[in-house]
Design a protein around this nucleic acid. Structure first.
Lengths: 220, 220
DNA sequence: AGGGCCTGTGAACGCAATGTGAAACGGGCG
DNA sequence: CGCCCGTTTCACATTGCGTTCACAGGCCCT
């Protein structure tokens, strides 16, 4: 089995010990860049991200590793109880989570179950909503079966919105979740991307992205 | 959302309480037969099986419910730490598990994540009062199920009032709490917004916002 | 009944939030 | 180096809606 990539470097000793005891091979990486550089030819089996120490760095790692073109295996988060609320908007970033301090046997069980699920049923990684379909593997979007020619940011923005249909997001939230936490720039950038998305969606479906005045945008 | 089926009947009180608090509708079933008999037309949203009391019965329930021709939603197990080993050979029976005693917020997070993975639908945060419902995530208000087209300030004012039913607020208090502490403007602004709210609520429900002469307004 | 408050009502004003077009920026590639 | 594409920023147009005002109507007290 390919190794698991673990963030951060070094990981907490109890995590390292648990992984060793359970017989997993793993490699620690201090950043997504590093993880990509030392990635084995056949990819990582999955990732374990410790998020209770430096949450922002952990989320950034998740995002980067999930955006990689390689279809990364399951991603398991390690969070503190106080972070449970933070998970709400980040469902797409992880497959399972475990509270710290964790019981080694619980961690083992979760990892085993994650990898079992991975091997058993390969699901088509799709986001669908009405006539819209986003293929997360091929980075292709289509509406009514017609492929859309979206740029990277357009695709990412549409994906994020479509993953939370109905929910309203402020421009600031969108900037931090789609562009990245460290992004510092004008909020009007969002408007412009929304405009181009609407144009590419066509008159008929432009209203898939709705404006909520003095709040933000909503999909659906 | 369709109800969740819970085993056994009755479930542990803390589980029932957590589900209620999180806003899920659920039905307890003492056996798979019973669960099949009372199943709604559109199926169960998922299942929660408490396995720490009577493991054998719990496994039997899982097997039966999984064998049903209906594609049951996610199945979440509730197990004790001592049972972690038992999970190893039963990966196909469940989608996620939670250790007892469980933290309500962990349970909520797992349920949300399970249902998110299933269909993208998350449980909305609502403010409800009689026929009125305010969805805090989508910024949508509805009365008797009919959506209301409210502006931002109308929505905010109605939300504030509905969050404190029965309580009377002076115009000054409303201005400071809804508009903002630093707000400096005429108190008649409140009147106008109340009027438009009443108009949009319709004749039948206009009295949801009551005038308390020479004091202010009250909801309910 | 009458007068003083208080609230409801309709319309108009003005600003702030958003839409829109185009130009500047920046990085990758030939 | 210069071109191309995607992104960001800016300036301007537009419109939605929050605020204000004047007046009408109702309630309560004397």
């Amino acid at each position: 089995m390919e190794p698991i990539v673990v963030f951060p470097d070094p990981p907490p000793p109890e995590l390292a010990q648990t992984l060793d005891m359970a017989g997993y091979t793993w490699v620690a990486a201090g950043s997504a860049d590093l993880a990509a550089r030392v990635e084995p030819a056949d990819g990582w089996a999955g990732a374990i991200v410790v998020a209770d120490r430096d949450p922002d760095a952990a989320w950034a790692f998740c995002r980067s590793v999930r955006k990689g073109d390689n279809a990364l295996g399951p991603l398991l988060l390690l969070v503190s109880g106080a972070q449970l609320g933070d998970l709400e908007l980040r469902d797409e970033l992880f497959d399972d989570f475990c509270l710290t301090p964790f019981h080694p046997r619980e961690m083992e069980a979760r990892l085993r179950h994650l990898f079992w699920r991975k091997g058993g049923g390969t699901r088509p990684e799709l986001v669908e909503y009405g006539p819209l379909a986003l293929n997360l593997e091929t980075y292709q979007a289509s509406i009514d079966g017609q492929p859309l020619d979206l740029t990277y940011m357009e695709y990412e923005l549409l994906k994020f919105l479509a993953q939370h249909p109905g929910k309203v997001f402020t421009r600031e939230i969108l900037l931090s979740r789609v562009w990245g936490y460290e992004y510092y720039g004008g909020a009007r950038t969002v408007d412009v991307h929304v405009r181009r998305l609407r144009a590419k969606l066509g008159d008929e479906h432009a209203n898939l992205i709705q404006t909520v005045r003095s709040v933000g945008y909503r999909f659906g």
